[in-house]
Nucleic acid binder design. Structure first.
Lengths: 195, 195
DNA sequence: AAATAATATTGATCTACATCAATAATTTTT
DNA sequence: AAAAATTATTGATGTAGATCAATATTATTT
């Protein structure tokens, strides 16, 4: 089995218990896609046909507001999933860009195939349920952080939780993820050094 | 069948296709709970044992930050589900209060029962998957709104989308949901009148 | 190794929103 | 119908973080 498939298998079987043959069946619904740095896999106004699992590399989802500012919605490195979630599940035109931040290898499943897959075996349905539940929980934590923490605290949390991301994404993308300008993040970092 | 069960049935069967007998089975895992205004069904430090569906009434989930300020995480009126999501799915101590904002009737399922239920019939699993997916999508929209919209715009969106909520929850709770102080929301409302 | 493009820093200034304190209005309880 | 409790408004003032513009640094391409 290919190296990236081993990691994918680990990822899946950590969440649901599968026979080897079941995993093979699961895997068969996915196709490999290679993207190069700065390449987009999703763009506004196009319905995103796939959900992507990052085998190697780094991806980022962001939106552009009316003033032309980027706001990072999600980062994804190895073993993370990424897509324009709203657009994907409702099969509506995307509002996000999903871009390769590094050359990346993805495992992709189409929306149609995903429906088939879930119908095939209740365990597969369970897998997607668990993923969705955890995503909700994660998003809710993000809402809570935004409501209750200062910019500095949000940055510290980011460093604590996503230390692996910090060095792989430009600083301005992290600023846009925690909800500050790149200038302000720069100043916060300077202040920390002075202390 | 009781009136509230009819609404519950509609809610479920809108998402998955069930025989009457299957719905009866589903319903059997739930118990009815009546709560009076200002009563808490979840408090910080206690593991929330249940997920609740509001048959009648109005509930609100909020957290208290270090300065003692309330931040509303979720509103729920008829046909909405509510719980401390993170705490419930991971069965950890809650960080939220979930409080009755009006006298309410709830249909509750315990975490244990929910596990049983999902194992019983793949359709039930599908139901929870769909719910979780939509919750993720909803939460993500909220993250995006917070990143891209001004306080006024967030308030307008709230009015547009949750007009039914507006008159059933105190204004300060709406302020805390969109992420402003009650004073500032009051001022925004005044400015709108002047225009 | 230059040239170019992308990213990060710094300074000056501005503003959206918070804080604090008082009062007014509304709802609930007795 | 008062009294008490809860919620909403208003004014004065403060500040976290934004904006704009310039420059410095780092990474990428030729």
């Amino acid at each position: 089995m290919l190296e990236e498939h081993t990691l994918f298998k680990k990822h899946i079987t950590k969440r649901i218990d599968l026979e080897d043959s079941e995993f093979e069946q699961f895997l068969n619904f996915f196709s490999t896609k290679i993207v190069t740095k700065r390449q987009f896999i999703t763009q506004p106004d196009f319905v995103p046909s796939h959900r992507s699992f990052v085998c190697t590399g780094a991806m980022r989802a962001y939106i552009l507001d009316d003033s032309g500012n980027e706001h990072t919605i999600q980062f994804a490195i190895e073993n993370w999933w990424i897509t324009d979630y709203n657009a994907y599940i409702y099969q509506r035109p995307a509002t996000m860009f999903v871009m390769a931040q590094e050359n990346s290898t993805l495992l992709q499943i189409s929306h149609e195939k995903e429906l088939e897959l879930k119908a095939l075996n209740p365990k597969f349905e369970t897998f997607f349920r668990i993923m969705a539940e955890r995503s909700t929980a994660y998003m809710q934590r993000r809402v809570i952080e935004r409501l209750t923490l200062s910019a500095e605290e949000r940055y510290q949390h980011f460093l604590d939780k996503y230390s692996l991301m910090v060095n792989r994404f430009p600083q301005y993308t992290i600023a846009s993820y925690i909800g500050v300008t790149t200038e302000f993040l720069s100043r916060m970092r300077k202040n920390r050094l002075l202390k």
